[in-house]
Nucleic acid binder design. Structure first.
Length: 269
DNA sequence: ATGCCCCATTAAATGGGA
């Protein structure tokens, strides 16, 4: 069995159903994890997605903001939706599916963006981002006994490597690339021995982005991107991964999201 | 300066994104 997983910050799932369909038709992933669905659970476009062969769906939505959805070709054996920081917002959903190599749990995250000022005293959104990342670390530390193969995807809103941003020098004090955030992300990574499977296939020497601002007149020409969207796996799955890439084309599709999808493929036979 | 765009909610502004 080949397993492919895509993560995509869709920036409104209802508005962008045409390109969700385009992605599912062109790439046919086994699992698609969406963030920023901005869609109350009662209004989620179930039937359009089910028609495309994705009958197994877990949503964690709210009105207006945030929201995640995980859609699968394969039956979902277990699901979990976890609340972080007691904020009542929708930023996580997990599913477990069966595979010939045993159950695989896929966590879908939307980490808070963190506002403008990288100072938790002056900016409560930045404080929330720090708290959220600390809670992730504590949770995965406590989950270390879980023997399931695991995949963690999502908009983590942090670009950790110097080559994950268009200019390390210019962004070193900009939220998403500060040392404080990178240290916290590293702590999350160590909390469950997560491997950055995208960088396993695309060396860290190479510039790589998954988000380009809407504000640039020409996003492609300016190319001032950041790699905010990630796919991590536990070590046993790292060995089984044979491909990963950013689907940069999708940033140029009709009425695009400002994020591009990221895909990883595994041989679980 | 990523930099004047794009979304949802709500009804022409506002908050949030990063």
């Amino acid at each position: 069995m080949d397993l492919s997983v895509i993560t995509w910050n869709i920036n409104s799932v209802r508005l962008r159903m045409p390109i969700v369909e385009q992605l599912l038709e062109e790439y046919a992933p086994d699992v698609l994890c969406l963030q920023e669905t901005k869609c109350p659970n009662g209004q989620f476009p179930f039937s359009a997605i089910k028609k495309l062969g994705y009958e197994h769906i877990v949503i964690n939505g709210q009105a207006g903001y945030h929201g995640v959805a995980t859609i699968s070709r394969h039956p979902i054996e277990a699901e979990e939706v976890r609340e972080f920081c007691n904020k009542g917002d929708s930023r996580h959903a997990a599913i477990t599916i069966a595979s010939p190599s045993g159950p695989v749990t896929i966590h879908n995250f939307y980490v808070p963006a963190g506002g403008d000022v990288p100072d938790p005293e002056a900016n409560e959104k930045f404080a929330h981002k720090i708290d959220f990342l600390n809670e992730m670390s504590q949770w995965f530390e406590a989950e270390k006994n879980n023997k399931n193969k695991m995949i963690l995807v999502g908009d983590l809103n942090i670009a950790p490597l110097e080559t994950d941003v268009w200019s390390h020098k210019k962004l070193v004090n900009v939220v998403s690339h500060t040392a404080v955030e990178i240290d916290l992300l590293d702590q999350v990574q160590r909390s469950h021995d997560w491997i950055d499977v995208v960088r396993q296939h695309i060396p860290g020497e190479q510039q790589l982005y998954s988000w380009w601002s809407y504000r640039a007149r020409d996003w492609l020409a300016a190319d001032k991107g950041r790699r905010l969207d990630h796919i991590w796996v536990t070590p046993a799955l790292g060995e089984k991964s044979h491909h990963a890439e950013v689907i940069k084309d999708a940033r140029g599709w009709e009425r695009p999201s400002d994020h591009a999808p990221v895909i990883a493929r595994f041989d679980l036979s």
